[in-house]
Amino acid sequence: MLRLDLAQEPRLLEIEFNTRDRLGEAQRMQWLGEVAGLQESLRHIAVKKQQAERLQAQAGQGENGASSLS
Rank of each mutant, 00 (worst) to 15 (best):
M1G: 10
M1E: 07
M1K: 12
L2W: 04
L2E: 09
L4Y: 11
L4M: 14
D5K: 00
D5V: 00
D5S: 03
L6V: 00
Q8I: 01
E9V: 05
P10E: 06
L12W: 01
L12G: 11
L13G: 08
L13R: 05
E16F: 01
E16V: 10
F17D: 14
F17H: 13
F17T: 08
N18A: 08
T19L: 03
R20D: 15
D21Q: 10
D21G: 12
R22S: 02
R22H: 08
R22T: 12
G24E: 03
G24P: 01
G24R: 11
E25W: 13
A26G: 08
Q27P: 04
Q27M: 03
R28V: 13
R28A: 09
R28N: 13
W31T: 04
L32G: 14
L32W: 11
L32P: 04
G33A: 02
G33T: 10
E34L: 10
E34T: 12
V35Y: 01
V35W: 04
A36R: 12
A36P: 06
L38K: 10
Q39D: 03
E40V: 14
E40A: 11
E40W: 11
S41F: 07
L42Q: 15
L42D: 15
H44T: 11
H44V: 05
I45T: 07
I45M: 00
V47T: 12
V47Q: 14
V47E: 12
K48V: 09
K48W: 10
K48N: 02
K48Q: 06
K49S: 13
K49Q: 09
Q50Y: 13
Q51D: 07
Q51A: 09
Q51I: 14
Q51P: 08
A52I: 12
E53N: 15
L55H: 00
L55G: 00
L55D: 02
Q56L: 06
Q56E: 14
A57W: 00
Q58N: 14
A59P: 08
G60I: 01
G60H: 03
G60K: 04
G60D: 09
Q61W: 06
G62D: 15
E63Y: 08
E63V: 13
N64S: 08
G65L: 04
A66W: 03
A66F: 01
S68R: 12
L69Q: 15
L69Y: 13
L69K: 11
